[in-house]
Design a protein around this nucleic acid. Structure first.
Lengths: 143, 143
DNA sequence: TATTGACTTAAAGCTTACTTTAACTTATAT
DNA sequence: ATATAAGTTAAAGTAAGCTTTAAGTCAATA
């Protein structure tokens, strides 16, 4: 099975121009071309899924490009790529923890507004707590 | 207790110029000024923590500004702000789920490289699986 | 055979989120 | 009194990540 750039763009929820841009900076290696047009094959989706992941964790395109370049070099770069993956795994863990704290902050805000709306005014809750009950109350905004 | 812009910048892990920029676009309402200089007080940290959260979940500064503007308008905007918070809460949930899937993809990659490094070559694992064993194997890169 | 629609490239343009620069003010230490 | 350090504004500059534009190619349909 093969796919056009528009089809793949739809799958990835990006614009075709974005995929062309990615290709232009070396993020889509070894894409077949038939009479000038990009043709995506099943094997390409393996990398596209990983690319999607890397984008999702806000890895800069330059880092992704670096990874692609290493992969292109073959077995001699296995260790380097492994290290990159490990580092990114830690980043994801950190990010999930940060998001979980934010979630709690927003849960508090939800309660805050529910209470305020019931009372018709923010005054009743405004000075109730200096922060979400689940967060430490200290000067440094914790993340 | 009061704090200078540099002190607060350190706490938030941003540059003083970033805080000035935030102030300039209306993200730091009601900051006291003494002889032209910004003076941060304890009450300001309540909002700074929320701001930090909003930044952490990649809420665009324009949306944050919108929220601040609503808050400035007082009780008449309680419902609107409540809705914003609920929407953002859902966004965080989605983002955490996405990150967890990425984490699994990276766990697979970790195994992939460990196996390849042991063997000295990628060939042994390259066509083992078309994706992380924990992810659906379909065309659409899932997030 | 001519038109349509989907693709192509190269280059310029845009948006977001800062960051830097330049010229100036103010409080504190010498 | 003066120098220094830390702040100020307005405006220009920067970087990342696309997006748009213009001019052209190609294959399929009317």
């Amino acid at each position: 099975m093969t796919y056009s750039i528009t089809e793949v763009a739809k799958m990835m929820k990006v614009k075709p121009s974005t995929l062309r841009y990615y290709d232009s900076i070396g993020l889509l290696p070894n894409i077949k071309k038939i009479s000038g047009r990009r043709v995506f094959e099943d094997k390409d989706f393996k990398w596209l899924r990983v690319l999607n992941c890397m984008k999702n964790i806000n890895m800069p395109l330059s880092k992704i490009k670096e990874y692609v370049a290493l992969a292109q070099k073959g077995d001699s770069t296995l260790k380097e790529r492994y290290d990159m993956i490990l580092k990114q795994k830690l980043e994801i863990e950190k990010e999930i923890k940060a998001l979980e704290k934010c979630y709690k902050e927003f849960e508090y805000k939800e309660w805050y507004y529910e209470t305020a709306i019931k009372a018709g005014t923010e005054k009743v809750v405004k000075n109730f707590s200096s922060a979400s009950p689940t967060l430490d109350i200290d000067k440094i905004p914790k993340i």
